[in-house]
């Protein structure tokens, strides 16, 4: 009976010991500011729009960074932490919106606009390079009206009068 009790208490002690050891192993050392900021710079707090979380000076952002530190200490991965923030505060906390729904526009419009621009430039350059056909030549300024004999005579007459006066 005494042996059974001894065995029981030994097994119980070992099990409890394992539990404590596994708990301690699951805890990570306190993450550094750099580790926190790797994730923080990808997040934006709705209170301070357009300021990344890693450089945001408000109390709200400091709380968020502390939350990231706590999650890292618990062994959460970067993706798990980002997912948690999206669940808690919405997708707008992410620096890059997830590619779904209307967010696709963010990913599609710029490349399409760039491609369209390149195409337009290409057509313009081609048109510049094309040799000018004779029929396409357009005078840039109209020629001055030709002087008729009558106009010319009058002009010469006025010139001679002016010369005579001097």
């Amino acid at each position: 009976m005494a042996i059974k009790q001894y065995l029981f208490s030994t097994v119980l002690t070992l099990l409890l010991g394992l539990l404590v050891v596994s708990t301690v192993l699951a805890q990570q050392p306190t993450p550094s500011d750099d580790q926190v900021n790797v994730i923080a710079k990808q997040l934006y707090c709705p209170v301070c729009e357009n300021i990344p979380l890693d450089v945001c000076p408000t109390t709200a952002c400091a709380q968020w960074r502390e939350l990231i530190r706590q999650k890292l200490a618990l062994g959460w991965s970067e993706q798990q932490i980002k997912d948690y923030f999206v669940q808690q505060y919405g997708a707008r906390v992410l620096g890059t919106p997830p590619p779904k729904g209307i967010n696709w526009l963010v990913y599609l419009v710029p490349p399409v606009a760039i491609l369209a621009g390149v195409y337009v430039l290409y057509r313009v350059f081609i048109s510049w390079k094309r040799p000018i056909q004779q029929g396409e030549v357009q005078p840039s300024t109209p020629d001055p009206p030709a002087l008729t004999d009558e106009n010319q005579d009058e002009y010469i007459q006025r010139l001679e009068e002016e010369v005579r006066k001097r």
């Binding site: 709705p46 999206v86 669940q87 808690q88 505060y89 919405g90 707008r92």
Partner: peptide, 10 residues
């Protein structure tokens, strides 16, 4: 309670 996903405030 928390405003999950900031849906209520939005």
């Amino acid at each position: 309670g928390p405003d999950l996903g900031t849906s209520i405030s939005q």
